[in-house]
């Protein structure tokens, strides 16, 4: 598991039903591309987050496939519809098999 991985998500606390909201996510991860070399000239093996998904009450919002060309600390911003109160679930999948989760509740109001 890559060290120091910390997901951060920004979701409004409340929204009107059927409203569009903007979600911003960031996860601290070095996203080693597999292109770089260390001092001895050996290639540093690739270690990235390769997939990100966001679901709301079991319905998919976005599913992103990330490649090594995504910057360190991958940042994603997108919009979602909130049909009812519920919970957003964010999942990041690491190359090494680790899965990082984050959940945010949103209320209608």
């Amino acid at each position: 598991m890559a060290s120091g991985v910390k997901p951060r998500v920004k979701v409004p606390k409340t929204a009107a039903a059927g409203d569009k909201i903007t979600i911003k996510t960031l996860i601290s991860h070095k996203m080693e591309s597999g292109q770089r070399k260390d001092k001895e000239g050996n290639i540093i093996p690739r270690s990235i987050i390769n997939r990100f998904t966001c679901d709301f009450n079991g319905e998919n919002v976005i599913d992103v496939t990330l490649e090594p060309a995504i910057s360190t600390n991958p940042y994603l911003e997108f919009e979602a519809v909130v049909p009812e109160a519920g919970e957003f679930k964010f999942t990041w999948y690491d190359d090494d098999g680790s899965v990082y989760d984050e959940a945010k509740k949103i209320a209608i109001g």
């Binding site: 319905e59 998919n60 919002v61 976005i62 060309a69 910057s71």
Partner: peptide, 21 residues
Amino acid sequence: SVATFKFGKLAASRSASTRIR
């Protein structure tokens, strides 16, 4: 390849932003 965005049912707009190398 940089990224592939697949939009689900609850995506409000078919847009996304990120940072790339």
